[in-house]
Structure formats: structure tokens, C-alpha cells
Design a binder for these strands. Structure first.
Lengths: 149, 149
DNA sequence: ATAAATTATATTGTATACAATTTAATTATA
DNA sequence: TATAATTAAATTGTATACAATATAATTTAT
């Protein structure tokens, strides 16, 4: 074990994580192009499909993104007609993001995406579950997620 | 199992991968600030510390980056005095990137980074190895890496 | 040998990311 | 109740990412 071994790319854990994330995002592109969404826009829409509406803070916490990323992204989604942006009447600081009809309808086309991606990533069910658990353990700051199925 | 369950964020594998990658990169920032490097510049330097020199193509294949990202990044590294950029005399299409003395010396300070990051990511040795293997399996297109230690 | 194809890098354009700052609204406090 | 502190978004500035295109050098094919 040489002094500089810890600086070799092949000994990093973060590097394959970084590379993998990008490679998978790239695989999404042709699928998401059909929906007129980028990957980041897609995960924002996923949150909205599930929760119907959200403010920027909530969305940011769920997606690990800040307003610097979300503000322009949400304007883009609005310009595409997928969401509406309006201030909360009770607390004008909050921006309420809601799906439009067009945004809701997009969900129908989007259901084809996850199965297509699954085909690109050739992991066994066990490996996928393992990966999932370890990633959430990292995201939760070292605490186990408890999921086993 | 509802029709739209596959579109829930919590059922995605790519999302925690994407979020995890970003969160860990964020943890690098204060450490890399001391070296005057960004994360992407850091992995480029890692390759150069190990291989002494490289052209853009080689670097791009190793880092999963294209010339659109690397060209400006390498100019930045040059402006910081860490690398030299010169055309290969035998084949002027190739740009040869070499470490400067300052770039080589930075390696001494960089050896402190990996141990500091390891402390931030609370995984068991077994989990880390598992994660490593699965990520490379994905990067290699579904073929197992064969590494077990 | 010269046009055509290929290769390597750079450039352009769009979209993230995120730290830091700013702005506006609300809440807490003196 | 005026002021301070806090909160939520937006903006600014820097640095990726990457597809698509452009440019220049080299190689291949005619």
C-alpha cells in the first residue's frame, strides 16, 4: 500500500457513484425527450404527480435541490405548460406549484419510462435492493433505512 | 400495487443515486476549497497524479466526460498553474496535458482528502465494497467486476 | 496525389447545481 | 408597535454536463 494509493481513481467510492449517476441520467435522455422533460424536470414532476402541489422549499427538500436550481426550472416547467406557479394567499412568501391538466396528463406517457430504464440497468433484484438500501443509508447520514424488501 | 407506483420517487433507484452523488460532492467542497479545486478538477488531477500525462480523449474516457466539459476545465487548471497544455508534435490533433511542479506538489495536500471523506460516509467495509462492486457493474454495462476484496 | 472519411479538440447553446447575496413577507422581540 | 430576526424565493456568479456543430489534422480510399 503506497502513500498515494488513496488518491487513485479506482480506490474511490464517490467516483463510480458520480459516474454512474451521470451515465444513468444519460440513458434517460431519449426517453424523457419524448415527454419534453429533462431529468431534473422529470423528478420534479414525479413529486408533483404524487403530491399534487408543493412549494419550492418542500420540493427542494424532497429533491435535494435549492431555489437556485428550482426557481428557473419551475419557470421552464410553467412555460412548457406543465405547472402553474402562484403565491400562497395566506403567506405570500410561499410559491405554490400546481400541476396543470397537461401536466397531469403527462403522467400517462411517463409510466413507460421506469420499465425502459430498468432494462438498461442489469442488476439482480437483490443487488438493486442492496444498492437502494446503501444509498439511502448514505443519504440519511449513516442511519440504516430499515427497508429489506 | 397501483398503476402509478413506478413513478414514485421512493421507488426509483436512479434518484438516490443522483442525490447521493450530489450530496457527497457537496461534502468534498470545503476540503477541495483548500486545494483550490472543484470536484471535477479534483478527479482530473487524480488521473494525472497517477498517469503523469494524458490527452483529452484518454481523460474523457477515464472520467466519463466529453471535450465540452474538459476543454474549459483544463484551461482553468492551466490558469491555476496545475497543468500545462501543449499539442502533440507527432499528431497535432492531440492535446497533451501534463502536471506542472505546482500540480505535482498539490498531491501532498490532497492525501488528506480521502480519509476526511471516508469519515463523512458511515458505511461498513462490507457495505462500501458491495456498493463499489454494484456501481462498477452498472458502469460496465451489467457485467460483474469480479472484485471481492 | 487528392478528395473523402475519420479523429481529436474546441465551441455553442441549453440546462443544471450550488454558494452567496438580495428581496420581500412574516414572526418574534424589545 | 416599531425593530430585529427569520423565512421563502429569486437572483447572481461560477462551474459543470452534454448534445450538436465546427475546425483542424491525419488517414483512407479512389
Amino acid at each position: 500500500m503506497e502513500k498515494y494509493d488513496c488518491l487513485k481513481l479506482e480506490n474511490q467510492l464517490c467516483f463510480p457513484l458520480y459516474a454512474c449517476s451521470k451515465e444513468i441520467t444519460r440513458k434517460y435522455k431519449p426517453l424523457l425527450d419524448k415527454l419534453d422533460l429533462t431529468y431534473t424536470q422529470y423528478i420534479a414532476m414525479m413529486f408533483l404527480w404524487e403530491h399534487k402541489e408543493a412549494n419550492v422549499k418542500t420540493l427542494g427538500e424532497a429533491l435535494f435541490l435549492d431555489s437556485g436550481t428550482l426557481s428557473p426550472l419551475l419557470k421552464t416547467l410553467e412555460s412548457k405548460g406543465f405547472v402553474e406557479r402562484e403565491r400562497n394567499k395566506q403567506d405570500e412568501r410561499n410559491l405554490v406549484i400546481k400541476l396543470t391538466k397537461k401536466g397531469e396528463n403527462l403522467r400517462e406517457k411517463a409510466v413507460d419510462v421506469p420499465p425502459s430504464i430498468a432494462k438498461c440497468v442489469n442488476l439482480s433484484a437483490n443487488e438493486a435492493q442492496m444498492l437502494y438500501n446503501i444509498l439511502y443509508k448514505i443519504l440519511n447520514g449513516g442511519k440504516d433505512s430499515g427497508k429489506n424488501n
